[in-house]
């Protein structure tokens, strides 16, 4: 397989065993992969644990777009970013984990911006459930007065 591979292509293998052939310039947008390539500890196939095929495909799509469009107008890229990260919560969480673990700065920036815009108008209860994994039961039984105080309008 490696013989048919062009010189500047890399194979990424997701956690569930699917393989993706990507140009090296795209793959090294991930700092973690870049370090592996530079240290020459990468064989033909680079395993990407913790990231399944579905998410890896998304990350590769994002990196490809950013690699191609360096000369393009920044506003175009911005609209692409905001559309790209506009997904369901599960996918968003998986993408954040993948981007953080693989150290893809551009993707992480776009994702964090998206989450920030999602949560900026939310109530404190909502944030607790989303970020700290509080359950409704805990919130109702913990300090009731404190919660009322927390949720007053700060305008």
């Amino acid at each position: 397989m490696s013989s048919s591979l062009e010189k500047n292509m890399l194979i990424l293998r997701s956690s569930d065993g699917e393989e993706f052939i990507v140009p090296e310039v795209v793959a090294v947008m991930s700092k973690a992969i870049k370090n592996m390539v530079e240290d020459e500890c990468a064989s033909n196939t680079i395993p990407v644990p913790n990231v399944d095929a579905n998410i890896l495909a998304m990350v590769i799509e994002f990196c490809k777009k950013h690699d191609e469009s360096e000369a393009e107008a920044a506003s175009d890229l911005k609209t692409f970013d905001s559309e790209f990260v506009n997904r369901g919560q599960e996918a968003l969480y998986d993408l954040i984990t993948a981007a953080n673990f693989r150290d893809v700065k551009e993707l992480l920036d776009a994702l964090c911006q998206n989450v920030a815009e999602m949560i900026k108008g939310k109530s404190v209860h909502h944030i607790r459930i989303q970020f700290l994994g509080y359950q409704l039961f805990e919130i109702l039984t913990s300090n009731f007065i404190w919660n009322i105080w927390c949720d007053r309008d700060f305008d």
């Binding site: 969480y93 953080n100 964090c112 989450v115 949560i119 108008g121 404190v124 970020f131």
Partner: peptide
């Protein structure tokens, strides 16, 4: 986003919030 987000990512997200939301989220 259900279970938890690593701390360094929480910082990155909070950095992008306006002051009004941050003042409110101190009580989280």
């Amino acid at each position: 986003m259900s279970d938890f987000i690593p701390d360094e990512i929480v910082v990155e997200i909070l950095l992008r919030l306006p002051t009004k939301s941050l003042i409110k989220f101190r009580t989280v």
